[in-house]
């Protein structure tokens, strides 16, 4: 009797383990290499990139899509390998290093005392679908260039990047967000270059 009850119980519990699901895809955004230099003159300063802060829902590896303006959902079988904030930080850091706009570039975990600090707030990183059956990669992020010695803002700018998606699935969304991230890197470098030249900041 005891054996019978135990066998039944284990069978019921293991039922969930026998459920078959398709495999989950993990995606990432690799830093892009910009062959031509946008920056003509390097700034003799150390820039520290602060970790991008994001809204709670974007602080995970879930791949979110947006329908219309308010319906949000997550792809079940597609995920990001890292959080969107980490992927954007990596892309921007790599592009800045490639362009050599600043003489020294350090990450947020460095002990180096920086001359300038770049802060950012991520508000949106979605694969957005429209009612007319089109979709796009959508990034909304705000950057602030700060003088850490005086604790004052040198410049601030909000970037809203939209790149069309080639297909209406997670893979298309990844391609579009990949393009959008690279475009964000380019625009951010151009903005930093202009802001430093136009400002009265001195080392």
């Amino acid at each position: 009797m005891k054996f019978f009850i135990t066998t039944i119980s284990i069978s019921v519990l293991l039922t969930g383990c026998f459920t078959m699901h398709p495999s989950t895809h993990e995606y990432t955004i690799l830093p892009s290499y910009i062959p031509s230099k946008q920056v003509t003159q390097s700034v003799n300063a150390t820039l520290k990139l602060s970790s991008t802060r994001s809204i709670t829902s974007l602080a995970s590896t879930q791949f979110y899509y947006l329908k219309g303006t308010s319906t949000i959902g997550a792809y079940v079988y597609s995920r990001w390998a890292d959080t969107p904030s980490a992927m954007i930080d990596r892309a921007v850091y790599s592009s800045l290093q490639n362009q050599e706009l600043f003489s020294t570039l350090v990450s947020s975990t460095s002990n180096v005392t920086a001359d300038l600090l770049l802060e950012s707030d991520l508000n949106a990183f979605y694969h957005r679908f429209h009612d007319d059956s089109t979709s796009e990669g959508f990034i909304d992020i705000t950057y602030r260039l700060i003088n850490p010695k005086t604790k004052t803002t040198i410049a601030t700018k909000r970037f809203i990047i939209i790149e069309p998606s080639p297909s209406k699935d997670a893979k298309g969304g990844v391609i579009a967000l990949n393009q959008a991230t690279h475009e964000l890197s380019n625009q951010c470098i151009a903005w930093l270059n202009t802001s430093i030249k136009d400002s009265t900041w001195k080392k």
Binding site: G16, F63, Y65, A74, V76, S78, K168, D169, A170, K171
Partner: peptide
């Protein structure tokens, strides 16, 4: 937790 009965809301194209 035991039976995995519910079906998740699949995303577009899934």
């Amino acid at each position: 937790l035991l039976f995995k009965q519910s079906k998740p809301n699949l995303g577009p194209g899934e």
